[in-house]
Design a protein around this nucleic acid. Sequence first.
DNA 1: CGTGGCCCCTGTGGGC
DNA 2: TGCCCACAGGGGCCAC
Length: 253
Amino acid sequence: MARARLLRDDICTTSDGRPAGPRDLLAGARIVDLDRRGKRLAIVADDGRALVVHLGMSGQLRLVAPGEIPTDRTHIHARWDVDDGSTMYFRDPRRFGGLWTFPTPTALAAHFADLGPDALHARWNNLAGAAAHSRRAIKAVLLDQRVLAGVGNIYADEALFRARIRPTRRASGLKTAEWGRLAAAVRQTLAGAIRAGGSTLRDYRDAAGNSGRAQQRHAVYGRAGKPCLVCKGRLKSVTLAQRTTVFCTNCQQ
DNA sequence: CGTGGCCCCTGTGGGC
DNA sequence: TGCCCACAGGGGCCAC
């Protein structure tokens, strides 16, 4: 990273609260590692500095080749000149995403310590261990990044459908077999979505600017009122944990 | 501590 | 055509 520029400092948080400078944003660093936990991506430099990116709802991290003009030029909050001549942009219209900077691997580890294990490798006891005695709805547990990191509203609904568990069920009422089905469903749902390139409802693009296709495979998310793909029953929509929640009243008990 | 509600922000699509 | 409202993939903070 030859150069780093922050165009809006309120989207960037440093570990000591001081305004971020170019060095915080990895200017002059050689990038040696990428580390991800759930929805947070850490870009790690050889001297231990790290930059964490969270895309929120509308965020994009784009890599643009030399001479190429980025299509969306509004709401770019940070920009990096990469050594090969390409440019990396952090763009986030809604600003629900953000950047976090860390001077050392220890500081980065402390940040990640607030998150549960990564959802791609969810195991039944990650869920049951954290929530077997919780009164919360099981969907609220799935959305809690301290329990499992990486499940958002789309894939919570999709995983619960795959596991045949009703999102409104109290977590403490789940049986051992259901915790196992749910952990497997989370892994399979996320792995399938990644294979399909992610869900592009509107904003999501990969680093090259390409849309995903996972939205074409959604069984319940965005399909309220439509027929269940398994039983043909009408999918129901409720609000749970301040999020729209869609499920099949027949298949999900 | 656990839990639920409110709020942050911009853009868009539908209803009128 | 245009206006206004509702709603959207996330999560921090507050009160209870």
